[in-house]
Simulated assay, not measured.
Amino acid sequence: MSCGNPHETPCSEVLDRVYWYLDGEVSEEDCDHIRQHLDECGPCLREYGLEEAVKRVVAKHCGCDPAPSELRDKILVRIRQVQAEIEVFE
């Protein structure tokens, strides 16, 4: 996804890191770049808002039960596969 406007941090890079950003797993420098990008880019901000809402709903309904590490790994692999497929079609 790209809004078509030039940014210091490209849309694709921001969207690739949105989960890590939501989880606080990016460096302070990356966090600043992502935050700046979201302030400038409506499409990415909407995508971020959607991901944030999904994360809240999952947390609310799944409580404190952590996912098994094997399941988490499989999900992350699949997410990366889908992201790669999307990039091919863009």
Rank of each mutant, 00 (worst) to 15 (best):
S2C: 10
N5G: 06
H7K: 05
T9R: 02
P10I: 03
P10D: 09
P10R: 00
S12Q: 05
S12M: 04
E13H: 01
L15D: 01
R17Q: 05
V18P: 00
W20N: 08
D23M: 12
D23T: 07
V26K: 10
V26A: 12
V26D: 08
V26H: 11
S27Y: 06
S27P: 06
E29M: 12
E29W: 10
E29N: 14
E29Q: 15
D32P: 00
D32T: 08
H33F: 11
H33Q: 15
R35Q: 04
Q36I: 05
D39S: 11
D39G: 06
C41A: 13
G42Q: 02
C44A: 04
C44I: 03
C44P: 07
G49V: 02
L50N: 11
E52A: 14
A53W: 09
A53E: 12
V54N: 11
K55C: 13
V57N: 08
V57C: 04
V58F: 10
K60F: 09
K60M: 11
C62L: 07
C62D: 01
C64S: 05
C64H: 07
P66Y: 05
P68D: 15
L71A: 08
D73Y: 09
K74R: 12
I75F: 10
L76E: 14
R80G: 10
R80L: 09
Q81C: 01
V82S: 13
Q83I: 05
A84M: 02
A84Q: 03
I86Q: 14
I86G: 06
E87V: 05
F89C: 03
